[in-house]
Design a binder for these strands. Structure first.
Length: 804
RNA sequence: GCCAUGGUGGCGGAAUGGUAUACGCGCGCGACUCAAAAUCGCGUUCUCGCAAGGGAUUGAGGGUUCGAGUCCCUCCCAUGGCACCA
């Protein structure tokens, strides 16, 4: 009687043996074939790991194990992105210091992570909230400052009234706070910014060579939002002032009918006439009250008011009224546009306010020409110019070039490139983050904290309750420290850094270990970067994944790293939902893996998640079917412990299946299709079970194929089969293409493309042989019905189609 | 509105232009058992037929091809992203 496989004791036994043998410790210096396998590090929350964590980490680990079996020196680290709001909010609620709760959370989380059985090298880990780590966050800031990429600016910032902090544009998409969903308001404030815009072109061009999902690249391209066009200067009538506008359609300039400024535009106050002053002021104060969300609500009608002033169109001296409208964005281009009949939005705006329009572009195909000229419909595509002086008759594309050149010669315009990307605001008025290492002299000028004072410690004598000013402002210790080092009257910066700064270079600090001399030792960086495989959520497409690229490029330019892209290959795992909704604590639909892991073991649970479907697809959670994986594990255990016999013969059918399985597993793990890897192994098991007994070599190969997806079980079986060492120290099997073809094959026989029978022939049979065999088939003969075939198509080893 | 991805049994899903529905779940029948669970065997897209076999079928409709889930066109639906960017 055979014993069933008992996962729990076996799994803890192997986890202990792996740890004792330091099996997952990678010697970075000695590695000959480095493979840097990285998953986005988690926030150490107090909640237990949920199904989503397992769905993310287990397949990533299986891929890393596969690479190790293929002979790579795999480095697979894990750590914690520990600064941030949740710990601080928890502290506000309970009074427990974030340092304490984070410390406890990382401990329990590490324990839970080890239950998955991942090959993490815990000799090198990071916790972004420790002084040893954030001294480097501060160092990066100082480097940015030194190289002119960090600056302080007054301006409107995205402000979350609930979290009482500033948000980066990337964190305030759709006008709501990405943490709590509260509507973001604009608030004037002095903030530190990093000049990510200086890297816009490189961030855009660098995408081309990255093995990233096209979708993600597209999202970054849209976020950077490069657009080429022209700047045109419109002098204000009877004034020395001028309005500069940006346009991508300078070919339409002869049809310009009006100009619209953003309500915040600095010229508004100066140019507004007495008669219009009241209306304009009223409109501006209303605009200020609106949130960004309201202002960008597409359903909302475009509104505006006339300022009473006019500009002169430099190309034809026409007088155009100046309006203000809140659909014009102050921060894009010059916060001003010209309006004309060839833009849908302008067209509607002009009709609403009875501004006279004229057309100067006609469609090349002449379609709807009358309706367009009569201003019944708006033509906004490229076409042919008319009524445009010497440019009449040109196509839009030609006209754009020539008009721009002409404007340049008149000094009334020039070719420019605009980006939608804005500089990264990194200041946060929160406690639980890396302090910005800056101090102010008595005159209020900022000075960097010199490197020798790093880490510039986060003070502990503060209240966590948000008041709208930074919590660090209350720290007596920080003020005393500043005065002691820099002198009387010097004051510390009291803002902390956005946590995305911490995570923008952590992949270097894993490699650096406890190196306190360099952010990363150049030899190690050269050898190990960029990350070979980076796995994480798609929600970071325009945040972490763009910041990390920017910081890597900057560090490259400062001379600290050789590479300028951090992540060569990127994959996003799919999302696991519950009843169609994303799992979240607030919805109360989070599924805990604990009960399943306890009952079936980690291997079964890992495989079950992988068996659900392709890794990048995700899916809706359901536990029906976990039994199927459990049966698979029991059967494979039974086969390897009771049916292995050194005297067993290996049939050619088994050999063919084995090599086909090796091929399938190799290819499908590479493309992260673990679901089909598992079904291929099930098919192989079905074949082997039909054999009675199995040769140890075959069983061992099966176990190695199983190793990436079921690490504990495969080591247990490897040992049971008398294998030496750990299964992970074996080599991934190679398949022999010659053995993929069975001795005899089943050929499908079609008549006129419809399946009418099957014949079994030797693999090397010729078309004639197969055709002859097919005619013997009663059903095939019936459908040919004595007709002479017009055509016979033979696909070797697969199919014969007889056309009559 | 624009862009992207997808739509296959009762369910999760599989399929280099070449036997659609692999693998698994579930379900049905049988074996073992006093019985049940577990396990094992057989069956399981729909439909007509006792059977042999026929017909239909990959969101809908067209097209290319000896042959289309796969390629092309039109449309419908779902999900994700972007969305006053001049």
């Amino acid at each position: 009687m055979n014993k069933p496989y008992e996962a729990s004791p076996v799994e803890s036994k192997w986890q202990q043996r792996w740890a004792d043998a330091q099996l997952y410790h990678t010697d970075l210096k000695k590695a000959k074939k480095p493979f840097y396998s990285l998953v986005m590090f988690p926030y150490p929350s107090g909640d237990k790991l949920h199904v989503g964590h397992w769905y993310n980490y287990a397949p990533a680990d299986s891929y890393a194990r596969f690479k190790r079996l293929q002979g790579y020196d795999v480095f697979s680290p894990m750590g914690y992105d520990a600064f941030g709001l949740p710990a601080e909010n928890y502290a506000i609620k309970t009074g427990i210091h974030p340092m304490q709760s984070i410390g406890e959370n990382t401990q329990t989380m590490t324990k839970q992570l080890s239950r998955i059985g991942c090959m993490y090298d815990w000799n090198r880990t990071v916790n972004t909230s420790t002084p040893e780590y954030y001294r480097w966050t501060q160092w990066v800031f100082l480097q940015m400052l030194k190289h002119g990429l960090a600056y302080k600016k007054d301006g409107n910032v995205n402000w979350c009234p609930k979290d009482q902090t500033v948000l980066a544009n990337e964190q305030a998409q759709d006008g709501v706070c990405d943490r709590c969903g509260t509507a973001v308001v604009q608030k004037p404030m002095t903030q530190w910014y990093w000049k990510i815009t200086e890297y816009a072109d490189r961030l855009l061009n660098g995408l081309e060579d990255l093995e990233w999902p096209e979708k993600t690249k597209l999202m970054q391209r849209n976020w950077i939002g490069k657009s080429e066009g022209a700047e045109v200067v419109f002098p204000v009538e009877a004034s020395a002032d001028a309005v500069t506008v940006f346009t991508t359609r300078v070919d339409t300039i002869y049809s310009a009918a009006f100009v619209v400024l953003a309500p915040e535009h600095p010229l508004v106050e100066k140019i507004t006439t007495k008669e219009q002053h009241k209306h304009v002021e009223h409109y501006r104060s209303e605009a200020r009250k609106k949130t960004d969300l309201q202002r960008t609500d597409l359903a909302g009608e475009k509104t505006g008011v006339f300022t009473g002033a006019y500009v002169i169109n430099p190309v034809n001296e026409e007088r155009l009224p100046i309006w203000i409208g809140d659909f014009v964005l102050a921060h894009y281009g010059h916060g001003a546009v010209f309006g004309d009949a060839h833009d849908e939005r302008d067209f509607v705006f002009a009709k609403k306010y009875d501004i006279p329009l004229k057309t100067t572009i006609k469609p090349a195909d002449g379609k709807n020409e009358d309706a367009i000229q009569n201003l019944e419909i708006c033509f906004s595509d490229d076409g042919i110019l008319y009524d445009s002086d010497k440019f009449s008759g040109l196509t839009s594309a030609e006209a754009r070039k020539k008009i721009t050149a002409w404007l340049e010669s008149l000094e009334s315009g020039r070719r420019v490139v605009q980006y939608r990307l804005r500089d990264w605001s990194i200041s946060r008025q929160r406690y639980w983050g890396a302090p910005i290492p800056v101090v102010y002299d008595p005159e209020g000028n900022p000075h960097p904290v010199p490197d020798e004072h790093l880490p510039w410690l986060l003070p502990t004598d503060v209240e966590f309750k948000p008041t709208g000013t930074a919590p660090l402002a209350q720290s007596k210790e920080l003020v005393e420290r500043t005065e002691k080092i820099f002198g009387k009257g010097w004051k510390p910066e009291v803002d902390t850094m956005d946590t995305f700064v911490c995570s923008s270079f952590y992949y270097l600090r894993y490699l650096a270990g406890d190196d306190l001399q360099h952010v990363i030792d150049p030899t190690t960086e050269k050898h190990w970067m960029p990350v070979s495989m980076y796995i994480g959520g798609a929600e970071h497409a325009c945040m972490h994944l763009i910041y990390a690229r920017f910081v890597m490029m900057a560090l490259h330019d400062f001379g600290f790293v050789k590479h300028d892209e951090p992540f060569k290959k990127l994959v996003h795992q799919g999302t696991i939902t519950n009843q169609g909704a994303k799992m979240s604590k607030s919805k109360g639909n989070v599924v805990s893996p604990d009960a399943f892991v306890e009952h079936h073991g980690s291997d079964v649970f890992r495989m079950y998640l992988m068996f659900m479907g392709p890794f990048t697809q995700g899916g809706d959670w359901s536990d029906t079917g976990i039994k199927g994986i459990d049966r698979f594990v029991q059967r494979i255990y039974k086969l390897c412990t009771t049916s292995v016999d050194a005297k067993a013969a290996t049939s050619s059918a088994v050999t063919t299946k084995l090599h086909a399985t090796i091929k399938k597993c190799t290819e499908d793990i590479e493309r992260l299709h673990f679901n089909t890897v598992i079904s291929a192994l099930m098919e192989l098991l079905n074949t082997l079970e039909g054999e009675g007994s199995v040769h140890p070599d075959v069983a061992k190969t099966l176990v190695v194929l199983l190793a990436p997806i079921a690490p504990h079980l495969s080591d247990e079986l490897w040992e049971a089969l008398g294998g030496k060492g750990f299964v992970l120290e074996q080599r991934w099997p190679a398949f022999d293409p010659a053995l993929l073809v069975a001795e005899s094959v089943v050929i499908a026989v079609q008549v006129n493309g419809k399946l009418r029978g099957q014949v079994t022939v030797p693999a090397e049979a010729s078309q004639e042989d197969v055709y002859a065999a097919a005619l013997e088939e009663e059903n095939v003969a019936k459908f040919i019905d004595g007709n002479e075939p017009k055509k016979v198509i033979y696909v070797r080893g697969r199919l014969l189609n007889i056309v009559v």
